[in-house]
């Protein structure tokens, strides 16, 4: 009840036509691994139907922030998160929230392609099956085709849907993982350096895919490559030593950053 009205107010605030809609909102987010603090009071909003890139030197907490957006940090025993993170105005760390449902709405693609050692078909229907989104064979066929088409993989694999997903090339595997993620119709897709294990051609394909997915999904992508951030994202957030240095339109961050640390990072002075 309470949540609903929160969400409603938020919508109302963001409603005016030219104002972008905020999908996820992080407020004073701190993350600890045991006694060690990895994130310090991060305040970052994720806009709907936009690609937000998280950049910053290695170990600055990009993955940590990303993983706190769908509570994947829960799987690490020592990890503790404080502050508020909301999805459509609902606090995702509320004890009443079902983490299974949250992860169905906020999907994730990992750094290294990690298809299950099952067939391509089984990989894609995995999520829909556990969430009860498919009832029969026809449903499943449809979901598989739709997701693979969206992920731009269908034409390449349509003749071998029942062969192991691990037999695909790296780039194909990563697109399979993206297909697997969008098969459960998430609203937000989190990607942690999705191209770092891929060759340049596969990278280009995946980037193109991210570009297309933006129309239907809200995307947050961690990347090590400035060029990639510049190519695929509309918004960019720069992290350094667990602190959010600055965020803003990608164009502005890359041409005219406010913070000297961002300037140093994008000109390659540290990284």
């Amino acid at each position: 009840m309470n949540m609903m009205s929160d969400a409603a107010t938020e919508k109302a605030v963001n409603a005016p036509a030219d104002e972008p809609v905020i999908k996820m909102r992080g407020k004073d987010v701190c993350v600890f691994y045991g006694p060690k603090q990895a994130l310090f009071d991060v305040n970052l909003n994720i806009r709907e139907n936009a690609v937000t890139a998280l950049i910053g030197p290695s170990g600055c907490g990009k993955s940590t922030f990303l993983r706190s957006l769908n509570r994947m940090n829960d799987t690490i025993d020592t990890c503790r998160v404080t502050g508020d993170i909301t999805l459509d105005g609902e606090d995702i760390y509320d004890p009443a929230i079902d983490v299974v449902e949250l992860r169905a709405r906020v999907g994730m693609v990992f750094q290294k392609p990690n298809p299950f050692p099952k067939s391509i078909y089984e990989n894609v229907v995995y999520g829909p099956r556990i969430h009860g989104l498919v009832r029969n064979k026809a449903d499943m066929d449809e979901v598989v085709e739709k997701s693979l088409v969206r992920a731009g993989l269908f034409n390449e694999v349509k003749d071998r849907l029942h062969e192991p997903g691990t037999g695909l090339s790296g780039g194909q595997q990563q697109r399979l993982c993206i297909a697997r993620a969008i098969a459960v119709s998430p609203e937000v897709i989190l990607m942690d350096e999705p191209c770092s294990a891929l060759d340049p051609i596969a990278t280009a394909t995946v980037e193109e895919l991210i570009h297309e997915l933006r129309e239907n999904y809200t995307i947050v992508i961690v990347t090590h490559s400035m060029q990639q951030a510049a190519r695929v994202s509309q918004r960019t957030a720069m992290f350094h030593l667990g602190v959010l240095v600055e965020e803003g339109d990608t164009d502005k961050i890359f041409t005219n950053p406010d913070d000297p640390r961002t300037q140093d990072y994008i000109t390659g002075r540290f990284g």
Binding site: R103, F110, F116, P117, Y126, I130
Partner: peptide, 27 residues
């Protein structure tokens, strides 16, 4: 069984026992 398998399954919203039953044990 690589941690990536577990993460992949949990990241899709599977519970721990679903992950064990459907991904880890088959693998």
């Amino acid at each position: 069984v690589p941690r990536a398998m577990r993460d992949g399954s949990l990241g899709l919203g599977a519970t721990r026992s679903e992950t064990i039953k459907r991904v880890i044990l088959p693998a």
